[in-house]
Nucleic acid binder design. Sequence first.
DNA 1: TATCCTTTGAAGGGT
DNA 2: ACCCTTCAAAGGATA
Length: 754
Amino acid sequence: MPHTHTRHGSSGDDLCSTDEVKIFKDEGDREDDKISSENLLVEEKSSLIDLTESEEKSQKVARPDHSPVFNKLDTHTTSFNMGYLVSPYSYANGAANGLPVTMANKIGLPPFFCHNADPLATPPPAHCGIPPYQLDPKAIGLTRPALYPFAAGQYAYPMLGSEMSQVASWHTPSVYSASSFRTPYPSSLPINTTLPRFSPSLLPSVHATSHHVLNSHSAIVASSSKQDCGSHQDSTTNNRYPRNLDTKNTSSNQSNDSSKDISNDKKKPHIKKPLNAFMLYMKEMRAKVVAECTLKESAAINQILGRRWHELSREEQSKYYEKARQERQLHMELYPGWSARDNYGYVSKKKKRKKDRSTTDSGGNNMKKCRARFGLDQQNQWCKPCRRKKKCIRYMEAMNGNGGILEDGSGMDDHGSDDDDDDEDDDDVKLNGSCGSVDADETANKIDDDAESLDHGSMSSFAQSPSTTTTSLASPLNMINFINPTTPNPAALLINCSATEQQQQQRSTSVSTTSTSVSASSGSGGTTPSTSSTVSPVTTGMPGINSSIPGANCIPGASGTSSSQTMLLGNRFSHLGMGLSPVFTTTSTAGTGLTTNKLEPFFGNNISLNNLNNSQIPIPVMPNIIRNPIGANPRDINNPLSINQLTNHHQPSSLLKSSFSQHLHQQQQLLNVTHMTTTSAVNNKNKVVVASSNRNDATTTAMMSISSHHAEKTSAAECHSNHEKNTDHHQQSNASGKTPSSAGATETGAISVS
DNA sequence: TATCCTTTGAAGGGT
DNA sequence: ACCCTTCAAAGGATA
């Protein structure tokens, strides 16, 4: 029960620090209509606040300009003795007026900052802003109810249903309102689940001191919430306090607790980023999706949500954008000095990544091609191949030396393309190395020059590159961009590549024409699962296109694949269901040399069979269609565990099955042709490796859910089927209409695939 | 226990 | 201006 008035006062003091003042000034600058209107109310109460303020001044000289709150706090000393144990809300109430005048006036606090004790009149305070308590969102859910037992009872908010919350939030300009964070989920749902960022218990604390509110601000989290949860102070002691610590506020704790100061130093306050529109949407809709689907895996849910997000009307989205805007504004007001950059590296993994990256960088210039290393003005320093615009030997060596992502010698890119060999290229190289070795450089280049077969190899090695950056490419949209030739994206290279490949394929219907891509197949075959597992099919550009993507094998648990690989693949493939092209996968079994091809068609709005079929690509006789054993492929209509059964989605099974299987067949044909090279390797082995992991099943289920819809839609549109469309069909039109560019991308993608 | 996965959007830094 | 990276939420899966 460490919290004494003094501490509160100090905190509050901090709260009302000049920083806050600055905030308000800023606020005034970017004043909101809403806020301005509310200022009137605030002003009405300013007199009271002023009074308290003066009182406080008399008591605490150290606090020049604020915090009547503290004074109030003092008045509630008794309750405070119990500290937050009993209820912070008593404190909150006492502090109702606590908001510093300056703050109140400038921030344009809503009416609920008044002393009004009316529960309904006391809106969620989160934005009443103040220095951050470091709250662990997860911890909050667990501890707060206990800590503030009567909060809910005292204030109706927590008890309010969604409607009521909305009503009550009428005066709440902030997105941190209860309505924003609590009501999104069905009222029946546990509040905790809905309030990671905004504790229900905090809502009642409308009257809480500003710092209280702030502390309770969901954006504030212990510096290392996950790690430190257990180490946090006793929950009864309002653990938020110690963590509150904006560096600016450190002085506030000076009072007695050097140890705490130390801990504060250690635990830097972590102010979370404000949620963006999509995040808000996700928060709100997640529960619904979870309820609708059997899925619980967030990754899968998020995929669905992402899709739904795009299917939302503009108006619907604008609602969330507005919320997000408000949240950002509020966040800005609360933490003027905060920068998203501050959170960089907050997560240890991030640090790890940075470390890895720095390590890679340390390899530094060596990782660059001569052109990048020495520049155009020092071409004499370039290695011979570079001078000839061929693959950089040095780069390759560096790559190999790094343990590289190009161990198979596929790291060299330079498809002999017209693309300049610049830094960008270097990145491309990582992603898109050709399959050639240094020695084979010339040969490879001949091929390149000759057939412009930007190589299957490059595709394959691209896929094999574990260093591939997955972040921005993970999104289906990114994928769209990725495959969109008009998009200035490294992916364009792949597109060209695949397009060229396609042309080549077309020029020669013979499977043997793909001989130029032997390296690709060899690469895939020679790549260990572990290597490929680190590669996202998405990152590889068009996962579905690249038959030689070892990691693209979405057969979960395929023999020779590690569990991690399975996981990765499963997850990664799951996003193929978001509108990516079918995936033709190749599995290489380490040690056995066994390679298995497998078709993994995923259909989406953007890249659909429709487009694929529209691509005027001759559909030769399908060579070998390796079929999954029943049960292995959820999409297999013969699979008792098909998506139709694994999900709650209502599938027009007849339509879906017929059209889907039809498309599947066609797709298989296309893909088999396209990836004949890889296939050939598979055929040689003539084996099928299939397995499944629970995880992948789950993910796959999600994919299936999505894919099935897409397939269904696609087939319906394409065949002009008279079948009654699923109620979800309208979404497709919306989505497609909203992403006009995707159409092109889709086509491109389709072309790439074929 | 920590990290991954997955989504979109915002923000900041670098080029 | 554009690109890239990171982080925000979520929770099961995985190492």
